[in-house]
Write a protein that binds this DNA or RNA. Structure first.
Lengths: 141, 141
DNA sequence: ACAACCATTGAGAATGAGTCTCAATGTCAG
DNA sequence: CTGACATTGAGACTCATTCTCAATGGTTGT
């Protein structure tokens, strides 16, 4: 099942309408760089002569996050950054404060930490955010 | 060396002036709840008849973060939250999305993760952010 | 102690990301 | 096809944070 199909199913299941704006946003999102902000997405839409309002773009991104096709991040003091999510795609981010490079990494021990937290405090974890900031190998020293 | 002394040293070292506004903000910050936002801090200042402008409060918080007396967080979609930092005070946060409760926890394995990242990619970590969102034991189920 | 220099402050304007409004438009079940 | 109602778009709005700049105040050297 591809992204569009998943999105359509999601829309149907929630009694939301299958509009061209929504599908167009999804298409363009999938063609963006891995990490992008809404501003770039809107620029891209404009440059492709797709006239979709800022409000609709924001509204649609929310849906895409909600149906699990996209994840939303906050890196440092900047606004939101989105990232299309692929199956079993579980990673955290390192951001170089000098050049802006983003390194994605996965360390299974993060799950150990979460597991121990749940056991210790009896909480249920729904979501998390884990970012590292520093200098990449080219910028350090 | 107490907080005020550290702050004064910091100011001197950076050729910044030792103003009553700056010291007042520090005093009131130390008397705040563990996690607070700028709005509450400004309210507190007002209620104590200390007239310090919004701009100065923001500017001073930046200094306090820079000199390591306070840490700055972003929890979810909300604005900044500050937290006075004590010696060897290394912890992450769990936030209950239902009741707002904050649990602080420390799991040494977070450092293992960071260590492995440094070795693997040759990066230097300067800072990080790690928050968990979910339901606390009273709100889950 | 004093003057002079320059950092700091405050009030309010400006910014900017994100949200809201509501009339016009589009979707879709029946 | 049509009615019911969800969605869209343009721009107003919000709200946290930053900026501006004239007035104020610390600090240093004498």
């Amino acid at each position: 099942m591809n992204y569009s199909q998943i999105f359509c199913e999601y829309l149907k299941k929630h009694d939301l309408k299958n509009t061209t704006e929504r599908l167009t946003v999804l298409q363009v999102v999938l063609a963006m760089d891995k990490h992008f902000d809404v501003e770039s997405l809107i620029d891209r839409l404009k440059s492709q002569q797709k006239k979709i309002s800022r409000a609709t773009v924001y509204r649609t991104m929310e849906l895409l996050v909600d149906c699990g096709l996209v994840t939303k991040h906050r890196f440092g003091e900047n606004g939101r950054v989105y990232e299309p999510k692929s199956e079993r795609d579980n990673h955290d981010h390192f951001l170089c404060v000098s050049c802006g490079k983003i390194i994605e990494f996965y360390d299974p021990e993060i799950e150990g930490i979460h597991q121990r937290l749940c056991e210790r405090f009896g909480v249920e974890i729904l979501d998390y955010s884990h970012q590292l900031y520093g200098k990449c190998n080219k910028c350090s020293g």
